[in-house]
């Protein structure tokens, strides 16, 4: 299964990848994106993954802004830290 991770904190994304691999080693993490800008560019140049893990607070804004400029019809899993 191809997944995408949108998360601006390195330790948090590393953790997510480690947990995913533990659950299902066949999971393929396509990319780890850090900002809204980076994500918009990615979505305009790649096919959609099966599942997206999205952090709400990114480097340059809130991930919800993505939906204004991209058509994302994949299931998204949101998480948010304090």
């Amino acid at each position: 299964m191809k997944v995408l991770i949108i998360e601006d904190e390195a330790p948090a994304s590393a953790r997510l990848i480690r947990l995913l691999k533990k659950i299902d080693p066949s999971v393929e993490v396509l990319d780890v994106l850090r900002s809204v800008e980076q994500s918009v560019n990615w979505f305009h140049s790649h096919p959609l993954p099966a599942l997206i893990f999205m952090d709400i607070q990114l480097e340059d804004g809130i991930s919800f802004e993505l939906f204004d400029s991209c058509r994302i019809e994949t299931p998204c899993y949101f998480h948010h830290r304090l």
């Binding site: 330790p11 948090a12 590393a14 953790r15 480690r18 830290r81 304090l82």
Partner: peptide
Amino acid sequence: FNSLNTLSELIY
């Protein structure tokens, strides 16, 4: 909370 989260990944 933030520190412990960071720490937990560091351990691995």
